[in-house]
């Protein structure tokens, strides 16, 4: 029981942490592949923020999250950097 509580506590801490991935300077399909690797290590519901400079990554992350069961919560651009906030889904 104590172990299970510890496990849940760990999950909660992990949930609150926003993972960061710097994919700037990488070209398709590497930003998505790197994000996919990080997402695989995350728990369902956790957030990942990816920054990229490849213009194609805008369409890529829209399509990738849609086809792999994740949620693209928000995306924005600032100073030539594209940022994507992704919530890990259950079916990835």
């Amino acid at each position: 029981m104590r172990d299970r509580l510890q496990e849940l506590k760990g999950d909660k801490e992990q949930m609150e942490e926003i993972m960061q991935l710097n994919a700037q300077g990488l070209h398709c399909p590497l930003p998505v592949l790197k994000a996919k690797k990080v997402l695989a290590s995350m728990v369902v519901g956790q957030l990942l923020e990816v920054s990229a400079t490849d213009e194609d990554s805008v369409r890529d992350f829209e399509a990738f999250t849609r086809s792999h069961g994740h949620l693209l919560l928000k995306s924005w651009q600032a100073n030539g950097v594209f940022v994507f906030l992704i919530q890990k889904g259950e079916t990835s």
């Binding site: 399909p29 590497l30 592949l33 996919k36 695989a40 086809s67």
Partner: peptide, 24 residues
């Protein structure tokens, strides 16, 4: 090719080390 490229990390011949050194 996009979907195939996104599936690269689940190919059997790709172990963790290879993935870590993934490059263009």
């Amino acid at each position: 090719l996009l979907q195939e490229l996104w599936d690269l990390d689940v190919l059997n011949d790709l172990n963790q080390d290879v993935f870590d050194h993934l490059d263009q």
